[in-house]
Write a protein that binds this DNA or RNA. Structure first.
Lengths: 126, 126
DNA sequence: TTTGATGCAAATGTTTTGCATGCAA
DNA sequence: TTGCATGCAAAACATTTGCATCAAA
């Protein structure tokens, strides 16, 4: 089973994601990391993002738009997508984990979690 | 502004989607419609799916997997994704629309809706 | 007759992969 | 020294689009 070795590229990606409030695409991440590591390749960015998502250190947000977006802040929180300017914002809200129980009622399998995002108009667009 | 003309291809897609319980991909839909319309093209399927989604007659489900899936049953319902066999099931559950209000609290913009899907293990995989 | 819809193929955009080389352990 | 990670380029996918032709109104 593959041992995971240190790589400065992966560190740079993690560092960049933990420090930004945006929810960048792989390409945006690539552009940014390139400022410190001009030789990094897009393939490496994708490979590391997949690794980090798998390890639970980064969240992948998809279905918003053509390409996936990534979020380095893994504490439980929800996202808001503006229908007008397509910005993604973090929502500070109380837990809605009880909807798992609602879903589990009368369901023969086992609901373990949910993925939710909210949409509407952001502060500037409303 | 574009008038929408009747097309038997679009009818066939709508009919197929309203009759299946699966949540097929564009390609699966294409394969099926091809049995009655051998000359239909994948481009036409995509064009019509986009149209139907825009008209609200079909739901697009994304973020589950590489490619988007479509659902002809537009009454409000939630989806469940099995982590093991990757099946998508419909959930019969009470409304959780109140989570919009939860999200709206302390949010400067305006939350208009949400997208939610549940995951876990289905009846056969648990 | 007019104009939207289609089929076909080429183009686009995103993500993955094969392979030789580099680097961590 | 071993084998995972990288850079590069090509490949793989999913989806969109240009254009000549077809068909609905």
């Amino acid at each position: 089973m593959a041992v995971i070795k240190y790589s400065r590229q992966r560190e740079a990606i993690k560092e960049y994601l933990s420090q930004t409030k945006e929810h960048p695409t792989a390409d945006t991440i690539y552009m940014n990391i390139r400022e410190s590591y001009p030789n990094i390749s897009l393939g490496t960015v994708y490979r590391n993002l997949n690794l980090l998502v798998e390890m639970g250190e980064v969240l992948r947000i998809n279905g918003m738009d053509g390409s996936d977006r990534y979020d380095g802040h893994t504490q439980q929180h929800y996202h808001f997508l503006c229908n007008k300017c397509h910005k993604i914002l973090d929502l500070e809200m109380e837990s809605i984990d009880h909807i798992n129980d609602t879903a589990n009622k009368d369901f023969p399998g086992k609901v373990e979690g949910h993925v939710t995002y909210f949409y509407g108009k952001c502060n500037e667009c409303k």
